[in-house]
Design a protein around this nucleic acid. Sequence first.
DNA 1: CATGAATGAGTATTCATTCAT
DNA 2: AATGAATGAATACTCATTCAT
Lengths: 211, 211, 211, 211
Amino acid sequence: MRRLPRQQRSRELVNRLIDATAAVITERGLDGTTTNHIAEKAGVSVGSLYQYFPDKEALLEALLERMGRDIGTKFRAWAEQFDVNRYPLRDVARTAVTVGLYMIRNDPLMRELVRNWNRVPTDRVLDQLEQVFLVIAQPYFLKNYRDYPVKNLEAKLYVVVNAAIFTTIRYLLQEPAPITEKDYIRAMTDMIVGLLDAPGARTPAPVSDPM
Amino acid sequence: MRRLPRQQRSRELVNRLIDATAAVITERGLDGTTTNHIAEKAGVSVGSLYQYFPDKEALLEALLERMGRDIGTKFRAWAEQFDVNRYPLRDVARTAVTVGLYMIRNDPLMRELVRNWNRVPTDRVLDQLEQVFLVIAQPYFLKNYRDYPVKNLEAKLYVVVNAAIFTTIRYLLQEPAPITEKDYIRAMTDMIVGLLDAPGARTPAPVSDPM
Amino acid sequence: MRRLPRQQRSRELVNRLIDATAAVITERGLDGTTTNHIAEKAGVSVGSLYQYFPDKEALLEALLERMGRDIGTKFRAWAEQFDVNRYPLRDVARTAVTVGLYMIRNDPLMRELVRNWNRVPTDRVLDQLEQVFLVIAQPYFLKNYRDYPVKNLEAKLYVVVNAAIFTTIRYLLQEPAPITEKDYIRAMTDMIVGLLDAPGARTPAPVSDPM
Amino acid sequence: MRRLPRQQRSRELVNRLIDATAAVITERGLDGTTTNHIAEKAGVSVGSLYQYFPDKEALLEALLERMGRDIGTKFRAWAEQFDVNRYPLRDVARTAVTVGLYMIRNDPLMRELVRNWNRVPTDRVLDQLEQVFLVIAQPYFLKNYRDYPVKNLEAKLYVVVNAAIFTTIRYLLQEPAPITEKDYIRAMTDMIVGLLDAPGARTPAPVSDPM
DNA sequence: CATGAATGAGTATTCATTCAT
DNA sequence: AATGAATGAATACTCATTCAT
């Protein structure tokens, strides 16, 4: 029972530093974020910061890693609660796109990171997202398309997941929005469904989608 | 006799500065590029540089703008020469994706810019690309799909063009490549076709794609 | 039964810390040596280190002191075993110079310290060396030059000892070596002999110096 | 006549920066000297400093280089004015040692640099000094010792010059002085003369060296 | 118009030392 | 006595931009 204090304190501090990083980025932007700001916000000295993170980049990595985990968890929870398998692909896709769009749009931190995705170890998040969708998608296709397996599923999932993510980022970053949100979601949904559920995508095309 | 020189000189100098910008970025990377380097490479003083461009960003914008125009021109030329309208959508899409992939991969300047797309006024290029594809696509759909107009074409083109571009960028930036190039091109082509030519995309679905 | 432990432990720890200092300097260079490294290498906490040494400098002093003692002991042993008194001054000098040269050149720790001699309490070693040579030299001169005592022996020994040491250091630090080792040793030997055994150096000058 | 201003200004600024470096080192010691201090003392911005010197070290090198040149010039002037060749070696040596001793002792900057000689590009000065003495010495020996050329003169000069310099440095840095200045100068002079002018040093050795 | 010298705010990181536990 | 987490002052260097000439 007295074993943990040290570790606990450590972990607490690490978390406080990651929180501080998130806060400072939100407040001052990625460029305005300095290690000194972060330490100050976390209520520790810079020295301590460097006791727990080798450099600024490591701090960012940790933040992104955590965000990746969080987002992954959220999506998995959503998939489970939503009981994804019960719904037609189109509904699942539309909901996922909508959820993702709103998630980024409403989170200033995420917006700032997304705006700077190439200067930031985005893979920490993207890998998680890809995995999540793969994990959600695979049983879905196994269950609902057992008889008509999708050809080349892995590559298609890679493309569709990344297309969804990056096109959404692009869409959100564009000012003014070139098309309405409704149109965006519909077109994106169409694209996802078109790839995964198109006739010719599965060996014998089943029934045509009603939408 | 001395009428044009001024404007001419101006335009020449502007171009020389843009060329220098491109060259310096290629040689030293975006981060290693300073206004002094650019001025030196262009053979003028920094002062002159600032006579023609209000700041560094403007220089980048001009470069990207020009690249956008060039790429647009190239693509248009390709579309015309290739006589796009004669081919089925799938062929057109596959070729366009392949051309784009190789264009970026083989151009060091483009690679460097793509790697930093979010720090750079990428819109200057993207807008051009969107337009090009719209211009290419619209008559294509008008001609080949006259009787079965694609619903919501504008939004779909926006989504598909951006998806193609950004997913390709993501794919090129990922090391190691998560799927083979062949698989990537096929899946991306499927996605484009799936969105634009899927049954249900057009009012009465025509003949199924032979793929 | 528990009488000595404390003092013993203390002394042991002090030695372990000095050993650690030597080891860390050897491994990471003087600049790369931190008190934390030393404590870690010694297997104690920094806090403990500061219980035994008021500051980093004290640690260095202790190390140098110990090295001085060791070197002194070695040289004294050499002098005794070699039975210095039996040999002509030239042989003694040449051997001493050679031994010193090799001793520094072959000991990485010594090389590192010598390279930084002015940031380090070198006196701890130099004083020892001066004393050693004085102790060696005095009986030598007493015995071999009894009838012709060297004038001003103390000052001469001071000069010659320091000249030998510092010129050797300078010689070892210079890259590339400006003269061959053989030439260096010969010239240095000549210089020592020239000062201590020159005609005119001793009272009844065998041949009066014309100068 | 208007050609020079730029170069002139440059050179002036360079000199001002070197002067500032000297001044700051004198005032705050080598460790307390920062590039910002130097720029401030020189009355320019740090940026300007870095326009003329790539880094702090270059500034030190320039200072030492200049000092080397100055000292070289002074010594050469002294040699010429003193008409060195007219005097016996002993007098020349004694005077040179005395001059050197006082030169360092009376110049706080030199003292600080000498104290830190191994962290500083001392070669810039030492090389000059070695050369000066060689240039002074060679004709001297040619003229005065033509008939009895000194064996191995190059190595001997190297040893004697460095011994004189470094032993003097050591002597000046030692507090309290272990021997009187008078004794020091005498012993050092003896050593120089003993090496260069000892019987056996020149070809027809009056009395053959026993070794 | 052209020049290019001058500006100076801004920032990640280290490490000797302390002191609460 | 021992620990080791916390401290925080201190420093070289860059580069977009200006403006006197």
